[in-house]
Simulated scan of single mutants.
Amino acid sequence: MKTLSPQEKARLLESIRDIPDFPKPGILFKDITTLLNDAEAFGLLMNHLADRYRDADIDFVAGIESRGFIFGAALADRLGAGFVPIRKKGKLPGTTIAEKYALEYGFDEIEMHIDAFREKEGARVLLIDDLIATGGTAEAAVKLIRAAKGSCVEACFLIDLTFLGGRKKVEPLASVYAVLEVA
């Protein structure tokens, strides 16, 4: 599967704004809204992802709330696949399945419709989100895909914050691809 050149990666990185001390002191937040409103950078990213997954026979793209919805819906359209939202607890109507994951202090939970893959057992699913940090949400999302009898082809992220090690939580469950790595 295709990867980006160093120049293309640099172009994407320069389109992402750093916001210091957000959402709390000591955090350097990677703001992707500046990539989204840069048509050239967003097009580069979406073309790359479409090229990477075009021949992977993806049935569904599952996006994690909320920025994964943006990339996931656009990519699903380009791949001719369905889009599946993975949301925080209590946000989806109908019958859902849930998976808890650990936070620094306590737990959180994400949900997906039980029939998200239209009863297609073994559906080939690409998981996508804007970034992977500690990996708890992504790990829970892969577990949800499996619980709904889907097969997670790959977990894809625009950014891997490598210093937080989240990839290690997901790799035992699914292949991980990050467009950009930030140390």
Rank of each mutant, 00 (worst) to 15 (best):
A62V: 10
P85V: 11
S5V: 06
F163V: 11
P6Y: 03
G94E: 02
V170E: 06
L164Y: 10
Y53P: 13
F157L: 00
R124V: 05
R17G: 01
E40D: 13
G80F: 12
I159C: 03
K168N: 14
A155E: 05
T96K: 01
I114V: 09
L144C: 10
D160C: 06
G166F: 03
F107L: 13
P172T: 06
H113N: 12
D18F: 14
L164I: 02
F157K: 00
A155Q: 03
L126R: 01
L158I: 01
T162E: 15
D130Y: 01
G90T: 07
E104F: 07
E40V: 13
G94T: 04
S175L: 08
R87K: 13
E40M: 11
R17Q: 13
F117I: 13
L161Q: 03
A148W: 00
M112G: 11
G26T: 02
I97C: 11
A41R: 10
D55Q: 15
T134S: 09
G94K: 04
R124Y: 03
C156G: 04
L131F: 05
R52L: 09
G106K: 07
P85K: 15
E154R: 03
S175T: 09
E8T: 01
S66C: 15
I145K: 01
T96F: 06
D130C: 01
L92S: 06
A178K: 00
A41F: 09
F42H: 09
E119C: 12
F42V: 05
R67F: 07
A56V: 09
A174W: 00
L144M: 05
V153M: 06
G68R: 08
Q7G: 02
K9P: 02
K30T: 01
D160S: 07
P172A: 06
K100F: 03
I145N: 07
E14C: 15
A62Y: 09
I132S: 01
S15N: 11
G26W: 13
S15R: 13
F69N: 14
D115I: 01
T134G: 07
I145M: 06
T137S: 15
G63E: 03
G135Q: 00
I159M: 08
A50D: 11
K30Y: 05
A123Q: 01
T137R: 03
E109Y: 08
I19K: 07
L4W: 08
S175Y: 06
F69E: 12
I70D: 02
N37H: 10
E119G: 15
A41N: 07
L180H: 08
D38N: 15
A140F: 04
T33P: 00
L45F: 11
R17L: 13
A183Y: 01
K100Q: 11
E119R: 15
T34A: 05
F83C: 14
P85S: 12
L75D: 05
S66N: 15
A140E: 04
A81Y: 06
A155R: 01
L4K: 08
V125C: 09
G68Q: 12
T134Q: 02
E109V: 08
P20Q: 12
T3C: 10
A81T: 13
D57W: 07
I64S: 12
L127D: 03
F157P: 00
D108M: 03
Y101Q: 07
H113L: 08
L45A: 09
L158T: 00
G63I: 04
G72I: 08
V125Q: 05
A116T: 00
F117N: 14
L180I: 05
